[in-house]
Structure formats: structure tokens, C-alpha cells
Write a protein that binds this DNA or RNA. Structure first.
Lengths: 153, 153
DNA sequence: CCCAAATTGTAGCGTAGGCTACAATTTGGC
DNA sequence: GCCAAATTGTAGCCTACGCTACAATTTGGG
């Protein structure tokens, strides 16, 4: 009776999402980047990356951090010893630097269009993983045009 | 021996992430928005929102779509009948419109800084859920200043 | 030096969201 | 009107990532 117009929809050439659904790996990689960046920051600023501090900064319990760190270790990004600071491997450092660069560009860009520092940092946190290379390049270009490269900090 | 400087780190007043870790709910809500927006679009353009088409557009299998739709139904956003088109409830429509508005602002903004349409749409897909009200407002302001409000489409 | 507090680790549970394999239903061509 | 193909639904498995509760280890104050 009130059957939807199935037939007429059949051959629609509607575009697929540019982002074909974050596959498992992609999403997992976002977490890895966040952790790597934060671990690097903690080591730089405090000399150690500790589970409790990571948990506090990420807003999760230490249990979640612990399990994630184990996964990162399986992936070769960090090394750990029980009850000691988390250490980044070469690959981990590389990743953290890529992430940091990207993060700073996004923050700098948001601030350049008048967004307050705190908001810019907060928003960038989630946005940065969804900014393509082309868009990142556009951000950089925008910053350069305004003589704001490198950002603030 | 090589114990990290635990003591000295104790009282660091390092800032928490502005985003205190996407709680379960937040993340779940992102999915709901994506689905609601896409369902609305499909209904508008083709007259029906069908599981297979959603799956194709989202880049996942129909099984994943089906389970998610069941969750949305539990949440009162959609109504379904077996083997029929998915329908949006009032709440679902409202959500889809909020999502659509936000999406268009982000896309419009990205395009306004020189990013190609396809890239802008793709990036906006992921970014839109991480743009705060303040940043969204800044985007709108930026667009208005350039007389580009409403965006393209 | 010892013992309480802090930190870290582990066990086990729940949901979200991917998947394959297979069953049920609908659609459409013949 | 039938039967194959397409669509939709269901069962069951996996990982990610939240959590609480509890165990193990380290740290530091007395």
C-alpha cells in the first residue's frame, strides 16, 4: 500500500560520503595520535608520562588509559615497564610530532579568525583528526598570508 | 635507579583538555546526527530512506546500519517497519535540521577559504561534530563579512 | 623502617560499531 | 504466477573504549 518508491530510487548516482565511514583502523589511529601527542607533551614538560596523569588529562579512568597503552605497545608506538613512566618509541615520537604540528596549525588557524585561545584549543582537539591534507594546507596558506606562521604558543 | 621524577610532578597545575574525553553519550550522539541528517536527505531527494542505501552512503554494511537504526528507534528518533523505509520522528527531524545547518555552515566556511567543494564536504563530515557554538558563530560571522551567507549548495 | 596513601595493574561487565554468514521478505522479469 | 535477485533482518563474533571493584606495587611521612 504505502510502499516507498523503491523502483525509482534504484539507479541513483548519489555521491558516497567523501569519508567512506571511518574504518576500524582509522578511528583507532586517532586515539593513537592523541595519546602519542599527550605522552610527548608530558615527557617534555614534566619529564615523565604517567598513567594517572594521562587519565586526568584525557578525562577517563586510569584503567582505560592502561588498556589503550597496552594496545599502543602492541602497535610499537610506546614501551612500558610496570609502575614506570611510559616511553615513546621512534615511531611514537614521529607520530607525536606529526600530531603536534597538525594540532598547532588548527589552533593557530582558529585563533586567526578570532576564536579565543581556550575555545580554539578545545575545538582543535576533536577537529584535527578530520582535517585533510588539502585543508591543512589551506590553513597554512591562510596563516602565512596573515604573517601568523608559526602560530602563537 | 632510572626512576622518573615522580615527586616533582606531583602538584602540576596542567590544564585538563577542554574536551574532557568524549563520554559515551557524546560519541553516540554524533552517530545519531549523521544518521538523522542522511535519512532526511534521502527522504527529501529520493522519497525514502532505505537500509541498503544508507549503508552504501555511510560505507558500512547493512547490518551495521540496521543495528544503529534500532538504537535510534529506542531513542525515539526514527520509526521503522520491517522491509519498509525508515521514517524520522519529530525529534528526528529536528535533529536532522540542526545537523544540516551546522554541516552547511562548516562546508560553506571551508569553501570560503578556498577549499574545493568535494574536499570541503568530506572534511566537514568529520569536523562538524567538534565545532563548538562559539566557533560556529565565528564561521557564520566570517561568511557574513564576505557576503557568502547562506553558503553555496 | 614501616605502614598508609598513591599509583599502577588486572578482572570482569556494558555499549557502540565494525564484520561474515545465513534466513526471511519483497520485487520484478519472464 | 513463479522464481531468482535484491533487500532487509538476525545470529554471532571481534575490537575499542567507557566503567567499578579489587589486587599489587611504589612512595613518602612519621
Amino acid at each position: 500500500m504505502n510502499r516507498p518508491p523503491t523502483k525509482s530510487v534504484k539507479a541513483y548516482p548519489l555521491p558516497l560520503k567523501g569519508n567512506p565511514g571511518r574504518t576500524r583502523e582509522e578511528h583507532s589511529q586517532e586515539t593513537a595520535l592523541d595519546y602519542a601527542e599527550l605522552i610527548a607533551e608530558l615527557i617534555s614538560t614534566t619529564g615523565a608520562a604517567r598513567v594517572t596523569e594521562l587519565a586526568r588529562r584525557l578525562g577517563v579512568t586510569h584503567v582505560t588509559v592502561n588498556r589503550t597503552i597496552q594496545r599502543l605497545q602492541r602497535g610499537g608506538l610506546v614501551r612500558t615497564r610496570p609502575y614506570h613512566s611510559i616511553l615513546l618509541t621512534g615511531a611514537g615520537w614521529k607520530l607525536s610530532e606529526e600530531s603536534r604540528r597538525r594540532h598547532e596549525i588548527v589552533v593557530g588557524f582558529l585563533k586567526s579568525i578570532g576564536i579565543p585561545d581556550a575555545v580554539a584549543r578545545s575545538d582543535a582537539e576533536g577537529m584535527e583528526h578530520h582535517v585533510s591534507k588539502k585543508t591543512l594546507a589551506a590553513f597554512v596558506k591562510h596563516l602565512k598570508r596573515r604573517g601568523l606562521h608559526k602560530p602563537s604558543r
